[in-house]
Simulated scan of single mutants.
Amino acid sequence: MQFYRTILLAFFVCASLLSQAQQKPFIISYVTAGSKALPDPNLITHINYAFGHVDKTFNGVMISNEPRLREVVAMKKKSPHLKVLLSIGGWGSGRFSEMAATAENRRAFAKDCQRIVKTIDLDGIDLDWEYPSSSESGISSSPDDIDNFTLLMQEIRKAIGKKKLLTLATLADAKYIDFKGIDPYIDFVNVMMYDVTLPPFLHNSLYRSERSGRVTLVEAMEAHMNAGVKKEKLVMGIPFYGRGNKKQTPDYVMFKDYAKLSGFEEKWDDVAKVPYLQDDTGTLVFTFENVESLKLKAAYIKAQGLLGAMYWEFSGDDDQLSMSKALYESLN
């Protein structure tokens, strides 16, 4: 009898350890085709390579700077835990609507995704169509895009198989996607919790304050869960950059460069839990992320049991990897 009790105890211990291992937060770094630096693989779990695009015949994938992608994939030789995905799309990347409109094009596109995954040794595909049924970024669209997107995800999953990852990037508001429809086919959802509004409002609030933009991080997570995404599939997007008002400050400034902005006062919104810069009239002119706000967001991820964090993009970090290290240490 004691023997069986010992075996049973060992089983529960192993199950507990396995559960803990599975609960380790994901940290997903975007690496771009035009950058040169590579992230420290010890501080991340995944890399999304940006970008691939729908080709001009609407039935295949074009990769920006393929040698750079292969350089990223080569990191797995020394860091076998690392997963590398090709992110297809991005703001202003079009031809999705035409590609997804027919079964023939969807199958051909999915087959090309399969080819790329196999030949380049990728761990999956990330879809960043911004956004199905919307022409906000200047791309073509159709009211049928949302349903066609679901069919496309089904086709890609069928092509790449169950062992490869299939993910997507989504608008913070959780619009434009049938999340219940795609749920059987996807592994997780990267919520782009940034760029929701420009100055004089904050683009990346954790909680709502009078300075917050269209949606806060908490509201974005709630919107996705209400739309049908399980919290265990939610990855929170964090910006390694800030946005300016284009008059007194540049539109886009990386974290490593924001200290160069002079003539402004750095302030802290203690309700929204993010920093900002204001001019001598008290007007918010620059909204950004720093180590302190990042740590609070990481704490929220852990407290809520979310899958992890994603950030755009690695080259925004400073030489000391202040943001990358803070995120890893806060989540682990």
Rank of each mutant, 00 (worst) to 15 (best):
D40I: 14
P41Y: 09
P67K: 06
V61H: 00
N42E: 10
P41E: 14
I44F: 10
K78L: 04
D55L: 03
L69F: 10
K77N: 09
T57R: 01
N48G: 00
G60E: 00
S64R: 15
P67F: 06
K77A: 13
G34P: 11
L38A: 12
G34I: 08
D40L: 15
N48D: 00
A37C: 15
M62C: 15
M62P: 06
N59R: 01
I47W: 09
H46T: 06
D55N: 11
L38P: 06
L43Q: 06
A74D: 11
L43T: 11
V31A: 02
V54P: 02
F51D: 01
V73H: 02
A50Q: 01
F58M: 04
K76L: 11
A33D: 15
V31Q: 02
S35T: 13
P67S: 08
E66F: 04
V72P: 00
N59A: 04
K77W: 11
P41A: 09
N42W: 05
M75I: 14
P67V: 07
P41M: 08
I47K: 05
A37M: 13
H53S: 15
M75L: 14
R70T: 09
M75R: 10
M75F: 13
R68D: 07
A74M: 07
V54C: 03
V73Y: 05
F58H: 15
M62D: 09
S35A: 11
T45W: 05
H46I: 02
S35Y: 11
I63S: 15
V54T: 03
E66G: 01
R70G: 04
G52V: 02
K36S: 13
N59D: 07
V54M: 05
H53F: 08
K78S: 12
L69M: 05
L38V: 10
H53P: 05
P41W: 06
T57N: 08
T57K: 01
D55H: 02
L43V: 10
A74C: 09
I63C: 14
K56N: 15
E71V: 14
F58N: 09
V31C: 04
K77Q: 14
R70I: 11
A37N: 10
N42G: 12
K56D: 15
S35H: 11
A50L: 00
F51K: 02
